[in-house]
Design a protein around this nucleic acid. Structure first.
Lengths: 141, 141
DNA sequence: CTAAGTGCAAAATGTTTGCATACTT
DNA sequence: AAGTATGCAAACATTTTGCACTTAG
């Protein structure tokens, strides 16, 4: 577990506040950099990347790797401790790129199955289901 | 669907034959390039990437994006037509990198659930479950 | 005062592209 | 002959790193 002490810097504070404001949607490191640049208070990209990485370690942010060659997606998860209670899966449409949040109980079954029958501890926050959303599935066929 | 006519070139043949020999494991584009270089019969990396991409479109190979900043993983799926019948999910250990193949029926339930309740057509071949394998889960705690 | 964070510019990586040449059909 | 594929090198985009400097504890 990467859990070194954390300094409360101005950048981290401002970042965190902005990230919180994006709750429910997804942003890339680039988006974050752009935002602060436009605000006239730019933050070094190295800092953005490093903070984002820390926040993922801390469980405050989630990181999704949709495709190689596509920037990683981050999502604010809240600063409370998530002890395996909160769960949130994502389904990503490979066609239009839409990202669907799945909070339903059904999904938990698969988690239990993986654990019991495969000894595999599923990480809700890092798993993405790929496929086609309703709209794209229709127009595809 | 990207399905242009395909020429039967020497590179494609040799590639396909090698890829077939890797059935059951995973390789990166770099691995493929290295292999042929070592064999003394190098293939241009552009060709490797382009063929790999075609093969994915054709359903002969699968592509997995484990992490950004990590090369994409490819897996040989066979040249027979897979019409939604064959299914194969993967669980990836975020710790040791082990990749587990899941062929069990249980997993199909989630596919149906996503379809019925979310209108989402799950792509078996592109979805990867992230988490911890049995061994790593143990040593982690 | 020490450890950690910042920011810049420079690597590093993986993947894609332009283009002239060679091969398939 | 027409349409693809190949391969090289250059281009790209994202992410990481080295290093001197600043800041938090």
């Amino acid at each position: 577990m990467t859990m070194k002490p954390k300094y409360k810097t101005k950048q981290r504070e401002v970042l965190l506040s902005y990230l919180k404001s994006t709750t429910g949607s997804h942003i890339t490191a680039g988006d974050v950099c752009d935002y602060f640049k436009e605000q006239g208070t730019p933050i070094g990209q190295a800092t953005v990347y490093r903070q984002l990485e820390s926040l993922v370690d801390e469980g405050i942010m989630n990181k999704y790797n949709i495709d190689s060659n596509t920037p990683a997606c981050f999502e604010y998860m809240g600063e409370e401790v998530h002890q395996g209670e909160a769960f949130c899966f994502h389904a990503k449409c490979g066609e239009c790129g839409k990202l669907i949040h799945l909070h339903c109980e059904e999904i938990l079954k698969i988690k239990n199955h993986l654990l019991k029958d495969h000894g595999f501890v599923l990480d809700d926050r890092r798993t993405v289901f790929y496929g086609l959303c309703e709209d794209c599935a229709k127009s595809a066929e």
